[in-house]
Write a protein that binds this DNA or RNA. Structure first.
Lengths: 192, 192
DNA sequence: TAACCCATGTAACCTGTTACATGATTAA
DNA sequence: TTAATCATGTAACAGGTTACATGGGTTA
């Protein structure tokens, strides 16, 4: 049920509307959790019925009205309890690696294009994460600062590692493609 | 629908029973995809009705009978089509980082215990992954070798990065705990 | 005037988890 | 004799995705 907890963690920093939360979990939590707006609205109404958040209606003149959600004492307690419970590792799931693993089935240029595209996406994510870290270090609350720093720094390291790996993978596939072009008996068009 | 594709990718190497697949997606695919046995049995029966795999009944004297699943030509084609379609990054989801981010809510020893425990789990996973890489490099099929190498090597890098990060995080939290013990006005028991 | 941003939701569907169910063989 | 391993499944539920729906204000 970590979506609920990620929402609560996000509301610790500042009260938000569902819309705010949906936009990449504004602020830092977006570095380690994602969810669609549908999921967030559903979860917020559950959290409200459970008393972990309260909604404040905000009427706006020029914009649609919105609901500002605030975390309650009960929400804090529930979050604390969850944090204190030991958990196992987050499940491994990565499409790109599955594709690459079976990559010998398809022509090399397709894989290379996919790797380039992923490299690009990781680079963008890395920039976002760096900006989020900056923003959080501006925060004058030294109690939360180093915790945020630790969490976001992992995300940054992970993206950096992705970029480096993409570069290596691209280099390897391009190299083997060239050497194949120069050879004279390529009877398997997708072998490295 | 990547579970189906991960199963097919796994069946490229060797035909398996549902039970075999469930045990960490025997062989390499387990480095980047996980699923419970219930999910796998459900998915295998769908793949069978779609004609992407065929089941061969194997009667065993001393063990329960089993079904060996083989990938079909249609399954291969379907896998190829999927690989060739551009995809976006796998979604970010990590409980531990959410916990750490809101870590100022709980006493430091709880976080430290959780970090130590995660470090241990990552170390175990790293060992498994290294063994899987070894096993795949023994494989004499040079066509699949470097693709497997690339995919698994990312998993190994990621686990290595986790270990290094855990060490840093533990060091930082332990250091700040010590300095707090020596100070004389710790009115916030969970601030670093 | 078309596209995008703000802002909230519903409904159907697919994916993943938890609990339940069975039953023989083998190693401690 | 207890627990683990092999081997397959069903059912109920929670989590996540896709599509649909609305409507005013702002920017190009």
């Amino acid at each position: 049920m970590a979506l609920a907890h990620a929402i609560l963690a996000s509301l610790l920093d500042a009260s938000c509307s569902g819309y705010d939360l949906a936009k990449q979990f504004d602020s830092a939590v977006g570095c380690f959790w994602e969810a669609s707006h549908q999921q967030i609205y559903r979860e917020l109404s559950r959290l409200e019925t459970d008393g972990h958040v309260v909604a404040e209606k905000v009427e706006q003149a020029t914009r649609p009205n919105k609901k500002l959600y605030h975390i309650t004492a009960s929400g804090r307690d529930w979050l604390k309890t969850w944090i204190a419970q030991p958990a196992s590792l987050s499940p491994l799931k990565d499409d790109l690696l599955v594709k690459l693993y079976a990559g010998h089935l398809v022509p090399r240029p397709i894989l290379l294009a996919e790797l380039h595209q992923h490299r690009q996406q990781h680079a963008e994510r890395l920039n976002q994460f760096r900006a989020r870290l900056e923003a959080h270090l501006q925060d004058d609350d030294s109690a939360t600062q180093s915790f945020a720093y630790l969490a976001i720094s992992h995300s940054i390291r992970a993206e950096t590692a992705w970029l480096a790996w993409c570069d290596d993978a691209i280099a390897l596939l391009e190299k083997s493609e060239k050497s194949r072009d120069q050879s004279d008996a390529p009877d398997n068009p997708s072998s490295p």
